[in-house]
Amino acid sequence: MALNTPQITPTKKITVRAIGEELPRGDYQRCPQCDMLFSLPEINSHQSAYCPRCQAKIRDGRDWSLTRLAAMAFTMLLLMPFAWGEPLLHIWLLGIRIDANVMQGIWQMTKQGDAITGSMVFFCVIGAPLILVTSIAYLWFGNRLGMNLRPVLLMLERLKEWVMLDIYLVGIGVASIKVQDYAHIQAGVGLFSFVALVILTTVTLSHLNVEELWERFYPQRPATRRDEKLRVCLGCHFTGYPDQRGRCPRCHIPLRLRRRHSLQKCWAALLASIVLLLPANLLPISIIYLNGGRQEDTILSGIMSLASSNIAVAGIVFIASILVPFTKVIVMFTLLLSIHFKCQQGLRTRILLLRMVTWIGRWSMLDLFVISLTMSLINRDQILAFTMGPAAFYFGAAVILTILAVEWLDSRLLWDAHESGNARFDD
């Protein structure tokens, strides 16, 4: 018995066209964080690309023209004298008006014999932002004059995390709450300039795509075929072959399989920071003279006294001054041990922890910024005066060393310790 099946006739004509040209192939790229070699397709503007294995951002879609970056830099340069030299806060102490600005706080630190601690604050609040705007201006002028731009481009990517104007702005709020127990506070004209400078700096850093600047100024022929001998440069993120001198053909720094002496430098910085954190938390970090009496505060006791007036601000200072430094030390110690013992479990967790400490590390400088600003506000000789204690130097040095330890660690070593050939990683 035959089955009668109805015929289905399409209502619209289906047209099949042959592909007349070869589909576009992607360029081969190595991930600078996990060293995976993959094919990167062509990316349009405002599109980002991520590593298929570790999800690290390979290409950032946010990109401004150099002219727009230069305009932002010149605007920031105009704001800087007002943000640093004009009063941020006014207080009335014992019937006398006192003005506080950024430069005055750094000068008070240096004047009291601790120039190293003052230079830490100076670099993060004044030096690094000033280098940022002058570097962008150098790129703008240098591109037109045919100057060598490689050193500036190499420095810009590392400079971003040292620009800490946003953290200093939080420190202004913390210092205001600490001082309000002794005097009446009012915002100064410099505060508005400083807030504007923070906003412009944040926007500029978020749109400063150094890798795209490398592509514009020093374009290189990408690798179009897969080759395990391809290496990625950690300076400019170019994937290719080393030249005859073993250097990256684009930025001219040595092109090595792994960062040289990464573990040794990381261990040295980490152990030194552990040693410095002990006096930083045991010795007094601030000293207040009130009517001839002397009151010393460690980091913890200062947080407890701050909690009596504002528990939320005390929580912020606790996280930045105690929780973050010790968390960074514990995480980095764990990561280094996992590399030495070739741990194969929990790779995803370790990668996330490394990215976390990379982002939060700079916030530990908050305590030094609060001390710097408070020193310029309260300084009335023996009637009422505020000065920093010996722990300030140890704390600042420990924070900087932990930042350097994270920067010096080559994250690809975590993958080397893991089993080879993993296309995915999980716990």
Rank of each mutant, 00 (worst) to 15 (best):
M1D: 00
P6M: 06
Q7E: 10
T11W: 13
I14S: 10
T15K: 13
V16C: 12
I19M: 10
I19F: 12
E22L: 09
P24T: 08
P32S: 15
L37I: 10
F38C: 08
L40D: 05
Q47N: 12
S48K: 15
R53N: 13
R53S: 11
C54L: 00
A56W: 10
R68D: 03
A70W: 15
M80N: 05
P81A: 09
A83G: 14
G85C: 05
P87A: 06
L88W: 02
L88P: 02
H90P: 03
H90Y: 05
L93D: 00
I96T: 06
A100K: 04
I106G: 03
M109S: 12
M109F: 08
D114N: 06
T117R: 02
S119Q: 02
A128V: 13
A128R: 00
V133W: 02
I136H: 04
I136E: 03
I136A: 06
I136T: 12
R144L: 14
L145D: 00
G146A: 04
G146W: 02
V152E: 01
L156T: 07
R158E: 11
E161P: 15
W162L: 02
D166A: 15
G173N: 01
S176E: 04
S176H: 04
Q186C: 04
Q186Y: 11
G188N: 11
L200A: 06
L200K: 07
L205S: 15
H207M: 15
N209I: 05
W214H: 11
R216M: 04
P219T: 14
R225Y: 09
R226H: 13
R226V: 09
D227K: 08
K229C: 11
R231V: 08
C236T: 00
H237C: 05
G240V: 05
P242V: 09
R245K: 08
R250F: 02
Q264Y: 01
W267F: 07
L276Q: 06
A280S: 03
G292I: 13
T298V: 09
I299E: 00
A307W: 10
V313P: 11
V313Q: 00
S321H: 00
P325I: 02
F326T: 11
F333C: 15
T334M: 14
L354P: 12
R362H: 05
M365T: 03
V370E: 00
L373D: 11
T374R: 00
T374E: 00
L377P: 01
I378F: 02
F386K: 00
G389R: 04
A392D: 06
Y394K: 01
G396N: 02
A397T: 06
V399Y: 01
I403H: 02
V406W: 07
E407R: 07
W408R: 02
L409S: 08
L409V: 06
R412C: 00
D416T: 13
D416A: 09
H418S: 13
S420Q: 11
G421T: 14
A423W: 08
R424N: 15
D427F: 14
